[in-house]
Structure formats: structure tokens, C-alpha cells
């Protein structure tokens, strides 16, 4: 339930950053050009503020932002540190 809620929040953040895209239709947001490097930085900042976490600089790499699932995994991993 908590994980589902997390995914919903991440989906809302993606929509807020790039409202012109339908993220449900992509399995790789970066490869599909829906998130650029500045979008990833913006999302990182939003995730840190919303979930009260610190994301390690080495984890701010495209592969951690490919899907809602990989972003949720990043949030989980960052929350454990």
C-alpha cells in the first residue's frame, strides 16, 4: 500500500515536471526523451524534499530514472542510508 502510494506521488511529480508527456506509455523515460539531465536534477530535489531523504550524488545517474519503479527503488535505497 505504502509502495503504491509512493509510486503515485512519483507519477504526480513526473507529470508536474513534464506535463506534456504520458509517462505510462514509456518504459524508459530518459531514452524516450521525456526526462533530460535538468529534469532529473529537478526530480531529485522534489524527491528529497517530499520523502525527507538525501540522494547520493553517485546515484543521480540516468538508469535510476528510467521508470517509476526504478525511481521508487532509488527512494527506498536513499531512505535506508
Amino acid at each position: 500500500m505504502e509502495q503504491n502510494n509512493e509510486r503515485v506521488i512519483i507519477g504526480e511529480m513526473l507529470k508536474e515536471i513534464r506535463p506534456e508527456f504520458d509517462f505510462s506509455e514509456s518504459d524508459n523515460f530518459v531514452e524516450d526523451g521525456m526526462l533530460d539531465s535538468f529534469d532529473i536534477i529537478t526530480l531529485t530535489n522534489m524527491l528529497e524534499e517530499r520523502f525527507g531523504i538525501k540522494i547520493d550524488g553517485l546515484d543521480i545517474v540516468p538508469e535510476n530514472f528510467y521508470t517509476v519503479g526504478s525511481i521508487a527503488e532509488l527512494v527506498r535505497k536513499s531512505g535506508e542510508k
Partner: peptide, 14 residues
């Protein structure tokens, strides 16, 4: 290439 430079800095500088 912002992503590549960012990753380089976070990898090498600390």
C-alpha cells in the same frame, strides 16, 4: 554533457 560531468565529479572528487 551535464550528466557525464556530474557523474565524473561525484565519482572522482570526494
Amino acid at each position: 554533457d551535464g550528466g557525464a560531468v556530474f557523474n565524473f565529479v561525484q565519482t572522482e572528487v570526494p
